[in-house]
Design a binder for these strands. Sequence first.
DNA 1: GCCGGCTTGTGAACGCATGCACGAGCGGAA
DNA 2: TTCCGCTCGTGCATGCGTTCACAAGCCGGC
Lengths: 227, 227
Amino acid sequence: MAMSSGRRIPEATVARLPEYLRLLTETLDAGISNVSSDELADMAGVNAAKVRKDLSYLGTYGVRGVGYEVEYLIYQVRRELGLDHDWPVVIVGAGNLGQALAGYGGFRSRGYPVAGIVDIDPAKVGTMLGDIEVRSVDELGDIVASGAVSIGVVATSAISAQDAADKLVAAGVTSILNFAPVLLNVPPTVTVRKVDLAVELQILSYYEQRRAEPPASHHARRSGTAS
Amino acid sequence: MAMSSGRRIPEATVARLPEYLRLLTETLDAGISNVSSDELADMAGVNAAKVRKDLSYLGTYGVRGVGYEVEYLIYQVRRELGLDHDWPVVIVGAGNLGQALAGYGGFRSRGYPVAGIVDIDPAKVGTMLGDIEVRSVDELGDIVASGAVSIGVVATSAISAQDAADKLVAAGVTSILNFAPVLLNVPPTVTVRKVDLAVELQILSYYEQRRAEPPASHHARRSGTAS
DNA sequence: GCCGGCTTGTGAACGCATGCACGAGCGGAA
DNA sequence: TTCCGCTCGTGCATGCGTTCACAAGCCGGC
Ligand SMILES: NC(=O)c1ccc[n+]([C@@H]2O[C@H](COP(=O)([O-])OP(=O)(O)OC[C@H]3O[C@@H](n4cnc5c(N)ncnc54)[C@H](O)[C@@H]3O)[C@@H](O)[C@H]2O)c1
Ligand SMILES: NC(=O)c1ccc[n+]([C@@H]2O[C@H](COP(=O)([O-])OP(=O)(O)OC[C@H]3O[C@@H](n4cnc5c(N)ncnc54)[C@H](O)[C@@H]3O)[C@@H](O)[C@H]2O)c1
């Protein structure tokens, strides 16, 4: 009895919805107006039952014997994810990573325009990154307030990351995406997601090493960890 | 009955080990030689029992009533993750992201030196990124072979990502970290991990929207297809 | 109008991960 | 030596997520 919306959606499902959305958009662009859970599952590389269950949290939008109408489903997924309007983001730290993020067009096109990027280094303040200017951290409050920003990105060095987070919270940001390899301490009202690229490599090398070293008594169990 | 090593470690645990390792290294740098599961759990922001269970997969390295010897534990975690030697990586795509990755010192210091970065754009080949030169994709095989590279990073545009992956696989790479928002098709012998930064933002905005819209029942069933 | 083929939505079983609770074992004090 | 406090290692229960399997339901053909 999945109701249209308002229901609590499992975290694992929330993490997959953006992927479905991307695939559905590609499908629509290809001129296909209807898709089955089987086809969508193939594209996403997951189980078809999982796709159906995931989508059932949004509501009953499929048609038995037919599948899902792509355009309508896109609308529903977007609505559920809160993508019926833009979510401007502010980036703290205009170093290697901050510059790459600011220069990336994929964020704007997906609904996350960069409302501003700030740095503490006076030498960087005032420089242009594409069409946006690096501003001072002191202006964070202004940027957040005037741009209705609720998402902040921490791209400073690890040592400064907590300081950056504190300033974002003080400025009124309520969600933070953290690229620094540290655990941020924030009020419980603020959501933090952390992306640690070095960790990704470490996970890969673990499986890599495991493959190279098939020792020991028991049968080497092949762990097909592909995605 | 935790066996010393070589046995299968749950994926969730593998994903946390790098984080423990980082915290342990910081702890050692701070001159602390012994740590309890409680302290480590606090630092990592997780449950103490989880820390103990995670570490127990490596072997029995703790001392009851005392805790874990930091230096020895670091050694064991590093060994388990395959970090007793470097894992050179090769980056495909010297755009915004590729340049940021190549210029990031944190990879080398964590045991992932950049063996090379390649691009298909002749205008980029030959340019220097810090102390490494952008080389042609044609040299991928050479770089992989001469540098004993087993990990590749895909940082090309989405359209070219599959091509980049194919070339990496052909060159002999067996693990791929993919930043392009597409599902890569690779042989089952190759492990792929995908990092999609836009997805992270989408997850954040989902919870953000959910917070702003506390009431449950509201949803006109608008037909996206209403013509 | 009816039938047969397809695909959805979901109950139920299973498997993995988490967290509790406690026995086992170590170090230090008396 | 003996006892006490502390912390590990882990059995077990609980909860979440995945997958199977199938009835419900729609469409097109006849
Ligand atoms: N560059 C990468 O590819 C990469 C990869 C993985 C992780 N990271 C992480 O991302 C973060 C940034 O990496 P980077 O390579 O861009 O570093 P960087 O040193 O190039 O840039 C950091 C920037 O942050 C600014 N900064 C420092 N303290 C600040 C503060 N308190 N407020 C505002 N700005 C401040 C600095 O002036 C600098 O411009 C680091 O934590 C790093 O570990 C980067
Ligand atoms: N820049 C970011 O911050 C960011 C953020 C999230 C995701 N991404 C993703 O990362 C990828 C790269 O982003 P970017 O901003 O660096 O893009 P970019 O366009 O700046 O760079 C892509 C580079 O790849 C090269 N390239 C294209 N096809 C190639 C091929 N077949 N072989 C070798 N090189 C090839 C291009 O010449 C270019 O230099 C994209 O898929 C993007 O969606 C980037």
